[in-house]
Nucleic acid binder design. Structure first.
Lengths: 215, 215
DNA sequence: CAGCTCATGTGAACGGCTCTTACATGAGTT
DNA sequence: AACTCATGTAAGAGCCGTTCACATGAGCTG
């Protein structure tokens, strides 16, 4: 990672040089520390070493910074899901389970991003790019669903969109309710990953799909 | 509904008479209007006609009011789910689907409560009563799951807790992602209700359960 | 009914936050 | 070398949460 003149501690001149990026990183750190509600524009400015008014040169307001963090989050999210799916190789069923795990892993390991994306109340339609980034992430899931149901006999294929929505909702629900290991809202007799895997397994079985490569 | 001396517009004396309740109602209205983040203690006080310091006689701070709203929400939620379940009558399968619909209906129709319960970042362990109210609501779902899997042959019964968690997560995920009809985060080709019903159907089928009363 | 007490209200104030406006700086261009 | 304009600062208005000293009056006690 590298940016023009911000990583070091050397005194900066009147101009920061990379304030926009610095603010985003500060926002992530603050969200990770105190949640999306605890994050303040002023503190991000402080932690970047500029006056409280400076951020307004780069973001219309606090919400726009939050929306930008969410947008970046969706881009990373898409990458993570795509990497997990890996074009359905070596085997779609296995790959699909991997996507589920990646969903939960992202929610846990990139919790600041996840927070901005889903818990900060950022309206999805605030920014077309945000909207599109979200759509692209979902598209990965949809692609997976499509590949999976292709195994079913033509007569009994459910709509891929519906299957993707079900899996997404289940993953999202589990991540929201039991996502963080420690700060979880409720204690569980099993890990979130196991819960999701079992749920998807049962669901796919309900569709008539089996995990083994018999079909 | 009735309270001692607050509903009317008659001038009140130095003391409000029912400030605590008035604040809760004001909070609900504000959350419904501007989301849990937009709700302010000061405005709730204003709308109850008292000074900004008055609420502190009834709640330690803003978060405690929010937590109280969430607690009341869980109580209502439990009632709604219980009514929908109706002891599994006339038929557990039908009743269980009714519970799912009730979940979504609550998220939509009581969105201010739902917001406080799940989207406001209120820590569940903030208050033991809040915790317990949440547990009681979940217990309804669990009871439903228990009754349903009792239909299965003894050898292939999954843990009721797991089934309940799956259904809860799916419901919660759908409600979070597509809950509000209008202000939904994403457009759908079907209603949230249909999506949930189909999902639960597929899931139960995966468990080996059929909707008709054959078993 | 007189007097007391204490829960519940008020007013004023502190510090912090968002956001705006007028002004300062200096990097890049001509 | 001069100019321009993106990017910074300072100051301040208005809001919020929260606290503290003080006011009020509802309900008990005698």
């Amino acid at each position: 990672m590298s940016w023009s003149r911000d990583g070091g501690k050397g005194p900066r001149g009147y101009h920061h040089g990379n304030l926009r990026e610095a603010l985003v990183r500060a926002a992530l750190a603050l969200i990770a520390e105190k949640g999306p509600a605890g994050f303040t524009f002023a503190e991000a400015a402080r932690s970047a070493g500029v006056s409280p008014a400076a951020p307004y040169r780069h973001f219309r307001d606090r919400d726009e910074l939050l929306a930008d963090v969410a947008r970046r989050g969706f881009v990373l999210f898409e990458e993570a899901l795509k990497a997990a799916w890996n074009d359905g190789k070596p085997e779609p069923f296995v790959a699909f389970e991997r996507v589920g795990k990646a969903y939960l892993a992202f929610a846990r390991e990139q919790h600041a991003y996840y927070s901005a994306m889903f818990e900060a109340g950022v309206p999805l339609d605030a920014d077309p790019e945000l909207q599109q980034a979200g759509d692209r992430a979902f598209a990965v899931l949809r692609q997976g669903a499509e590949t999976l149901i292709a195994r079913l006999p033509a007569g009994q294929r459910p709509p891929a969109l519906m299957v993707a929505l079900h899996v997404w909702s289940l993953s999202h629900g589990i991540a929201s309710l039991f996502g963080r290991g420690d700060a979880a809202r409720r204690k569980l007799p099993m890990s979130a990953e196991e819960l999701l895997e079992a749920g998807v397994l049962v669901y796919l079985q309900g569709l008539g799909l089996r995990g083994d490569a018999t079909k």
